[in-house]
Design a protein around this nucleic acid. Structure first.
Lengths: 224, 224
DNA sequence: CGCCGAATTTAGGCACGACTAAAAAATTAT
DNA sequence: ATAATTTTTTAGTCGTGCCTAAATTCGGCG
């Protein structure tokens, strides 16, 4: 039987691998809010497990084995399906779905997963724009073009927001920077200064904001 | 913080007190599928907790304190609301809801509870006819008239089924013995023999069955 | 090349919640 | 009333997953 802790570690390893590339014990410790020594211990256990769940050589970082990746994807599928279900079916705000899904992901049955997936029409993205892994283990590529890389004059659409911090998500929602919102970059201040953007569909009332780098780095967009 | 194990113990104590009256460690051990010695240990811990969750004197059985009862009722409210939600919103069969609710009851937030309660219209009974405790801690009296006590000639309606065993519930569903089904007792065989019943609304096709004592003891009915 | 600081691992412990085996208390039978 | 039986409790362990403190090991720099 796979414990919740193991599921959390595998999920974290997958996520860090996704957006940093190399998974160190200290990154894991930060991500999981746990002491580094605890991570070393758990990672050694995962590497000794049969079937092996991670590859691990001391001081060399961690990678998932196929068996480990399979579990990670199942947990992430649960997480993202639940997030979407909470938003769509229960009317949760997008800043609250992560915390609730974090707990539910470990306990729902296959049947529950199938029922909500069917009810949602086999969706492929969650409320933050992250792809939902399919049952067969395939995952669509996440959008990786940050708003911070867009040149003035371009109009794009928000495709993904990385970050589960409710404060941050509420802040974005207040500015109208929600999933699929249209954004035009009007100006980029020099020396890494704020990015000026106009938010809103053509014709609708357009609001403008100046956004700092740490914000625009965490918003990913699609060219139209 | 209250652990899942503690929640399970308090819930079990409440349930046993409900339908047996006196809660012994061995009954608890059976109910929780745990060794008797483990129960003694946990019960001592609950009695030492601040605030005290149970009253316990060795060899005298266990009772809930107000604080313990409050937690038990919260867990049971979660459990029964979730059961109903699974049945109503996700189309679960009534034999599957218990197992799923067993896991979900410990992890859902107050917000989740409120949202599904509102969606269901603040219901007062779960899919097995058990009353759903209100948020303020009040609980309707459960129906306690067993089908086994009904005299031939009487027509009654199924109000509650005690038992979470999926096999048993599927068996009842096959016979048409579902919640709110109308049942007429036609004959009671002597020497504690089977009870003969006709199932179905007036006008609808009526099916008859002979039911053993262990079945009719676990079905509770309302006189019309 | 060797040293410094940061990252990582080892060692030793703790809280939980389960278990088994054996002792003690309560209940039932003689 | 005492013996036999059942129930309950005590004592001692174990596995999981976390912690802190004290080594190590790595990587870069003088």
């Amino acid at each position: 039987m796979i414990s919740h802790a193991v599921e959390d570690y595998l999920k974290a390893i997958y996520e860090i691998e996704e957006d940093v590339g190399h998974v160190t014990t200290s990154l894991l410790a930060m991500h999981l809010a746990v002491a580094p020594a605890s991570v070393t211990g758990m990672v050694q256990k995962l590497a000794k497990a049969r079937p092996r769940l991670v590859n691990y050589e001391r001081h060399q970082g961690v990678t998932l084995t196929p068996a480990g990746r399979k579990i990670a994807l199942e947990v992430i599928r649960h997480h993202r399906l639940i997030e979407l279900y909470l938003a769509e079916a229960l009317g949760y705000d997008w800043d609250k779905v992560d915390a609730e899904a974090e707990k539910l992901e470990h306990v729902i049955s296959e049947e529950f997963e199938d029922k909500i997936a069917a009810l949602l029409g086999d969706p492929t993205v969650d409320p933050h724009g992250d792809p939902i892994p399919a049952k067969d283990g395939t995952v669509a590529e996440a959008c990786r073009l940050p708003l911070s890389a867009i040149e003035p004059g371009c109009t794009v659409r928000i495709a993904r927001v990385r970050d589960a911090d409710p404060e941050f998500l509420r802040y974005l929602a207040e500015l109208g920077l929600t999933l699929r919102a249209q954004v035009t970059v009007t100006e980029r201040a020099p020396f890494d200064g704020p990015l000026h953007v106009a938010v809103g569909e053509a014709g609708a009332p357009v609001r403008t904001h100046a956004l700092g780098r740490s914000v625009t780095d965490r918003i990913f967009v699609e060219r139209q």
